[in-house]
Computed example of a mutant assay.
Amino acid sequence: MAAFITKRLALTVLVIIVTSIVAFMLVHLSGDPAAAMAGEGATDADIAAVRETYGFNRPLYAQYLDWVAKLLQGDFGRSYYLRMDVGDVLAEHMPITATLGALALGFALLLSVPLGVFAALWPNTMIDRFSLWLAVAGQALPSFLFALGLMYLFGVYLRWLPISGTGSWQNYIMPAIALGYYATPAIMRLTRSGMMDVLQSDHVRTARAYGLSPWRVIIKHSLRHAIIPVVSLAAVQLGFMLGGSIVIETIFSLKGIGYLAWESIQRADIEIIQAILLVIATAYALLTLVADLLNAALDPRIRVS
């Protein structure tokens, strides 16, 4: 197990390093940051002054190494627009996105895993057809349209929930449902297919032959094995929610990382954009690492291989 963890940690560090290079290069090669910061009416002299002031006239590798050296010291840089430390800005917005992502993933798992299990237990029944319909609707319905529908029904018409802001836990209910519903179809289908395969395996037939209760066979001997690929998918989906929540956060006026990224792109705040890309990519890599370790704990064959 120690060798397995070491290999996965090394791979995660390598992914983070490569991602930092890609994030830095994409931001700087997508356009002239000095021209974007100077504004539309800036002259060549103004752009040259900005380039000189912020060191954009140096080679890219030198700028990257300086950026990494500061990151290793916990310094994400300083926002050109907000005149604040980027670390403080991220610390203000990240909890909102993290809370939204965790609630959205929890909703997706609570809805999709039971549906997938029931659909596998009773294939070609109304439960199976309902699960299939839910999966198709989740893939076909755009998240922003679903979010607007929730906002109108529960916020405007019924007035049960607030439609914007982060004043209480109720503000997260509709955004979490709108964001989590998009991940439901994939998790549900994967749970269903995994359960159907496991239910036909020899060890499940043996457990039934020993006279174990049906729910013990389902939970202990079937779901434990079928849930292994779902763990990996859930980690990927959570990373997607953290990085792709910009639409939901904008609709419900949640000042999270997604909303901050959109604002930073609008005002060409390079330091914040770079930091957000790195933080989201690092979260993706760490979530994948956690999923690999959980899968190895659930199935010893993974760490042996």
Rank of each mutant, 00 (worst) to 15 (best):
residue 80 Y to A: 14
residue 22 V to H: 07
residue 232 S to H: 02
residue 170 Q to H: 06
residue 65 L to K: 14
residue 168 S to Y: 02
residue 250 T to Y: 01
residue 89 V to S: 09
residue 225 H to D: 13
residue 218 I to K: 09
residue 282 T to L: 08
residue 198 V to K: 12
residue 2 A to M: 09
residue 131 S to Q: 12
residue 288 T to L: 02
residue 287 L to N: 05
residue 128 D to M: 07
residue 174 M to A: 06
residue 96 I to T: 14
residue 156 V to Q: 08
residue 98 A to N: 08
residue 26 L to Y: 00
residue 60 L to G: 01
residue 266 Q to E: 04
residue 91 A to S: 15
residue 16 I to S: 09
residue 89 V to T: 14
residue 39 G to W: 12
residue 171 N to G: 04
residue 77 G to A: 10
residue 231 V to A: 01
residue 281 A to C: 09
residue 205 R to I: 01
residue 8 R to D: 01
residue 129 R to T: 06
residue 189 R to K: 12
residue 89 V to L: 10
residue 209 A to W: 06
residue 236 V to I: 13
residue 234 A to E: 07
residue 60 L to R: 07
residue 206 T to P: 02
residue 76 F to M: 15
residue 301 R to A: 04
residue 159 R to C: 00
residue 220 K to D: 03
residue 192 R to S: 01
residue 58 R to S: 08
residue 56 F to K: 07
residue 105 L to H: 03
residue 78 R to C: 02
residue 196 M to D: 08
residue 219 I to G: 02
residue 246 I to P: 00
residue 101 G to Q: 10
residue 102 A to S: 04
residue 82 L to D: 15
residue 64 Y to A: 05
residue 36 A to V: 10
residue 260 L to W: 03
residue 91 A to L: 15
residue 55 G to K: 08
residue 266 Q to D: 07
residue 47 I to R: 04
residue 92 E to Q: 14
